[in-house]
Simulated assay, not measured.
Amino acid sequence: MIYSYFVEKSIRQSFDDINNHRVDAAVKALVPHVRHRVSGVHALGGERHDKEAARRWFERLGRVLPNLQITVKHIWVKGWPWHTTVFAEWDGAGTLLNGTSYVNRGLHVFTLRWGRVHALEEFQDSQAAARGLAAQAAAGLEEAVAEQIVS
């Protein structure tokens, strides 16, 4: 279906935007009252209910894991333009400030309506994220252990 092709292309582009720290482009498709949830009790965990808080979260992601590169493995698109669910399986890797490798993997679940993101839930290895953030904080990056951005 041609619709699925364009949705997949858009989702891949959003991951590329995040990899390249283009936050404005990455959050452009979010509705003002988006629900963004990330598992884990760490600086990148929590739940946000508005676009501005989600923007701040993506900006923080770029600061606390500045060379994180997310590689999309598979994307599945289900539904119609008025209600679409997208699953994006990914691997993430980078180098922490102490020189060690950061590796994580996960699944994003997007809920789209007419091409706009109404919900984004991120499932990942939250313990790997917490360990990586703790290492960043130990190397002097205080924001890596800051309070969650919630709204």
Rank of each mutant, 00 (worst) to 15 (best):
72 V>P: 04
47 E>R: 15
75 I>V: 14
30 L>H: 02
50 D>C: 06
93 A>F: 13
35 R>E: 01
112 L>S: 01
111 T>G: 07
82 W>H: 14
58 F>D: 00
105 R>P: 07
24 D>G: 06
22 R>T: 02
30 L>N: 02
62 G>Y: 13
20 N>G: 03
42 H>M: 15
123 F>Y: 15
49 H>S: 11
23 V>S: 01
29 A>D: 01
56 R>N: 03
110 F>Y: 14
116 R>W: 07
122 E>R: 05
79 G>C: 04
92 G>R: 08
96 L>D: 04
121 E>I: 12
90 W>L: 06
101 S>G: 06
49 H>W: 13
34 V>K: 02
91 D>K: 12
112 L>H: 02
65 L>V: 05
78 K>H: 10
34 V>T: 03
100 T>F: 15
33 H>I: 10
70 I>L: 10
73 K>Y: 05
106 G>V: 09
31 V>W: 00
101 S>L: 10
54 A>R: 06
55 R>C: 04
54 A>W: 09
80 W>N: 13
92 G>F: 10
25 A>N: 08
97 L>N: 12
18 I>Y: 00
75 I>S: 07
23 V>Y: 01
22 R>N: 01
37 R>E: 12
104 N>F: 12
22 R>G: 01
99 G>Q: 10
34 V>Y: 00
21 H>G: 00
122 E>M: 09
124 Q>S: 13
24 D>H: 01
117 V>C: 04
95 T>W: 13
78 K>I: 11
48 R>C: 11
59 E>A: 06
30 L>T: 00
64 V>K: 00
32 P>S: 02
18 I>A: 05
74 H>F: 11
23 V>G: 00
77 V>D: 01
82 W>R: 15
80 W>M: 15
100 T>W: 14
38 V>F: 15
126 S>V: 07
92 G>L: 11
65 L>H: 04
45 G>A: 06
36 H>R: 12
103 V>P: 09
34 V>W: 00
54 A>T: 08
64 V>H: 00
98 N>C: 11
63 R>D: 04
31 V>Y: 01
43 A>K: 14
27 V>Y: 05
52 E>W: 09
22 R>L: 04
81 P>S: 07
47 E>P: 14
20 N>Q: 04
43 A>E: 08
60 R>M: 03
48 R>W: 14
76 W>I: 15
38 V>M: 14
56 R>S: 08
123 F>G: 11
20 N>C: 03
79 G>T: 09
49 H>F: 13
103 V>M: 13
113 R>V: 07
78 K>S: 07
70 I>C: 02
33 H>S: 09
81 P>H: 09
70 I>W: 08
51 K>D: 09
116 R>L: 04
103 V>D: 12
113 R>D: 04
70 I>N: 02
113 R>A: 04
96 L>F: 15
56 R>F: 03
51 K>R: 15
56 R>H: 05
31 V>Q: 00
36 H>N: 12
39 S>H: 05
